[in-house]
């Protein structure tokens, strides 16, 4: 492996790490926005603003290297699954089997949609490449 490919590999690994971090920030954002009670609770509101900036920054950083469709799919997937699983932990909500089922359908749908978007873009772009 040449040193150039090694650098490209470590760049990709770092971008994926930043993307996973962005997903974690997005979970924190969702929980904090819920906990802010319409931005009437100061502590949760401040946490929400911080996570909002962190998730935007980390996602944009990751998308410099990772394809936007794939990156968005992973980020949104982590955010939605994390919020669904941790909402009951923080706010005494219940995740009934029916809710879990339909949430799975929705989240799988949007992840699939973004991956398809990425795939179809690359198929369209391919002839233009040397």
């Amino acid at each position: 492996m040449s040193s150039e490919t090694a650098t490209a590999h470590s760049d990709r690994a770092r971008a994926w790490l930043v993307l996973l971090l962005a997903g974690a920030f997005e979970v924190g954002y969702a929980l904090a926005v819920g906990g802010s009670q319409g931005f009437t609770v100061l502590s949760w509101s401040l946490v929400a603003v911080v996570f909002f900036l962190l998730t935007l920054f980390a996602l944009s950083l990751a998308l410099r290297t990772i394809d936007v469709g794939i990156g968005y799919a992973v980020w949104a997937g982590i955010g939605a699954v994390g919020a669904a699983l941790l909402g009951p932990v923080f706010f005494g909500e219940t995740l009934t089997p029916a809710k879990a089922l339909w949430l799975t359908v929705i989240i799988a749908g949007v992840v699939w949609l973004k991956l398809s978007d990425s795939l179809e873009r690359r198929q369209t772009e391919r002839p233009a490449r040397p």
């Binding site: 319409g38 919020a83 941790l86 909402g87 009951p88 706010f91 909500e93 929705i106 949007v110």
Partner: peptide, 27 residues
């Protein structure tokens, strides 16, 4: 978007409201 989401989440469960919001926006 965040402020309006927070108003919606006064009624929706966090996980439910958030998933609908982000997914419908994706669509």
């Amino acid at each position: 978007a965040t402020y309006l989401l927070s108003l919606a989440l006064l009624t929706f469960d966090v996980g439910v409201g958030y998933a609908i919001w982000t997914s419908v926006a994706g669509v």
